[in-house]
Design a protein around this nucleic acid. Structure first.
Length: 526
RNA sequence: GCGUCCUUAGCUCAGUUGGAUAGAGCAAUGCCCUUCUAAGGCAUCGGUCAGAGGUUCGAAUCCUCUAGGGCGUACCA
């Protein structure tokens, strides 16, 4: 809709014209402050320029009125245009707002270590990533959702150790020395039991079998994680394991050429000068690769697969890694600008107003699945999707769990359910409703219709600016308009019943489509 | 110290990328169900947009400085 207005203006002025939605509908559907920027060039007052421009729109069928007010040019769309657009939207169903954008994108997110189930801190990245995925696909992009599995390195060794200690302590009744850091939790107890029944007591004692057990446990844990994700409607297309990539190590190192060098038995990457403070160790002097090494071969593999664009969603604590990884990409001979890293800031937790630290050791980790069980996946998704992800956010744990009807998701769902009730109660046939024309609507109805028709712009804006929270914000605003309209206007028995129902069907369509892009199913009844 | 992301109502957050009178939800107070679902609506209360300069027709938004906070600054992941 906006695209069409904008295209028309581009033809007229031979340049892109900034269009905005005025806060006050009295100023029309769209407006532009272009006269202000032209006034210097033309040496005329903005008011006069706006007047002239407004008058130059004679008989465009798209507009009902074009007016100049205090230097702004306000456009009011014509009723026939809006009606036709509404009919077009209804005929497209949930494809409303879709587009045919081109491009392949590899989107990597979550990628939590396979050493335990997901905790509440992982929810942000998962929800944000999946929302972007759905938005992008709706717009036509060919996007692959990928999970990078860190199945190599210290944390895997630690997993093996933790598993054996847990088994020896809890199952065999042995006194054990707990190391500084180790994993614990119900999932680990359960895994230890499984080890005992499947591999016998010896497996818990034999330290030479730690690695084998760790790798076995890692797969089991990954299944837990996949289940956690499934519970919030998040699905990945591909899983890439770090360990599986090391076969290509020599080839990748050769590919980096001068980008790497050896000093005192260690291999460094020449990342300083490319936005990094100093060069980083890639391989230690004992031959063990660092975490960065895994990322280098992984990104090489990503680029060899040949996507046009790459998006990584990382926690903010990884931001120091961006420069290093980009340096590696450059040395590998690829364009680092193709890699876009979106940082999601930390989620910090409060309990009774006091900062609350999740600690594996103290067993105070709040699992995502527990929260989902309490408040439901829809509420959790909507809550996390509503937050802009470049600010750190604080959640009070009790409040998080208390979220019931005060969660905005119910406000949006209720709006959708109210419409469905009206449609099912009405005696009007669907055919009559669809054939009615949205002419002569009240100002409130017009405002509601326009808000519902704006969905495609919201989707595009939310995805292209990577600000997924714009979609839930929009849905809340649309629901608010609907609730007000519902309260003010009695639809059943209204002289314009068919028209109003058509209008409401458009609203329901936008709500349903928007919710599905958030991974939430709209409810017909509450 | 350096890098980076931030600071908007009592709390949690928006603010259309520089536009018209800075907005929601929660919390507080008071109204509205013999009317299509009150999981709703209306009203009141609440602001030095952290502070100070600058850029211009116009700044919460851009620039500089100051104060405060998160994260990073590992041969941990």
């Amino acid at each position: 809709m906006k695209q069409r207005v904008s295209a028309l203006l581009r033809d007229k002025f031979n340049c892109d014209v900034l269009l905005e939605k005025p806060k006050d509908r009295a100023f029309g559907h769209f407006s532009t402050p272009i006269a202000f920027s032209l006034s210097r060039e033309l040496r005329k007052s903005p008011m006069i320029i706006a007047e002239e421009i407004a008058n130059s729109f004679g008989d465009e069928s798209m507009f009902g009125a074009v007016e100049s007010v205090k230097g702004y040019i306000n456009f009011r769309l014509s009723e026939t245009f809006l009606d036709e657009y509404a009919s077009w939207a209804l005929s497209h169903g949930e494809q409303f707002g879709s587009d045919d954008k081109k491009g392949t994108i590899l989107l990597e997110f979550v990628s939590a270590n396979p050493t335990g189930p997901l905790h509440i801190g992982h929810a942000r990245g998962a929800v944000y990533g999946d929302t972007l995925l759905r938005l992008g696909r709706h717009l036509g992009y060919d996007i692959t959702a990928e999970y990078y599995v860190n199945d190599a390195g210290n944390q895997i060794d630690l997993l093996g150790t933790s598993l054996q200690l847990e088994g020896r302590s809890a199952l065999l009744g042995e006194e054990v020395q707990w190391p500084e850091k180790y994993y614990r939790g119900e999932y680990l107890s359960a895994l230890a039991k499984e080890v005992q029944s499947q591999f016998g007591d010896d497996a818990l004692r034999d330290e030479s079998r730690q690695k084998e057990l760790a790798l076995w446990a890692k797969d089991k844990i990954l299944e837990l994680i996949v289940d956690d994700l499934k519970a919030i409607n998040v699905h990945f297309d591909t899983f890439v394991g770090e360990a599986s990539l090391y076969d290509e190590w020599d080839r990748v190192m050769a590919k980096m050429g001068d980008g790497v060098y050896v000093d005192e038995g260690k291999t460094f990457i020449r990342s300083s000068g490319l936005g990094d403070d100093h060069d980083r160790v890639v391989v230690r002097d004992d031959g063990r690769p660092t975490y960065l090494a895994g990322d280098i071969i992984y990104h090489n593999q990503k680029f060899e697969r040949g996507y046009e664009h790459y998006i990584n969603i990382w926690g903010a604590d990884h931001h120091g890694y961006i420069a290093r990884v980009k340096a590696a990409i450059k040395f590998l001979g690829y364009n680092p600008e193709k890699l876009e890293v979106q940082l999601s800031q930390m989620v910090s937790l409060l309990k009774d107003g006091e900062p609350f630290k999740m600690s594996k050791r103290a067993g105070t980790v709040i699992q995502m699945s527990d929260v989902v069980e309490e408040i439901g996946a829809d509420a959790l998704r909507f809550m996390f999707a509503s937050k802009k992800c470049d600010t750190a956010l604080e959640f009070d744990i009790e409040e998080l769990k208390r979220q019931d009807s005060s969660n905005p998701i119910y406000y949006v769902q209720y709006a959708h359910a109210r419409i469905q009730t009206l449609v099912s109660k009405s005696e009007m046939s669907l055919e009559d409703i669809m054939n009615s024309r949205l002419i002569g609507l009240s100002a409130d109805a017009d405002g509601l219709l326009f808000e519902a028709l704006v969905l495609p712009e919201v989707i595009e804006d939310a995805f292209e600016s990577r600000q997924a929270q714009k979609l839930p914000d929009y849905l809340k605003a649309l629901a608010a308009k609907l609730h007000k309209f519902y309260y003010d206007t009695r639809v059943i028995g209204h002289e314009d019943e068919t028209k109003l129902l058509k209008l409401l069907l458009v609203v329901a369509l936008s709500l349903k489509t928007g919710l599905s892009l958030l991974g939430i199913e709209a409810k017909d009844r509450m």
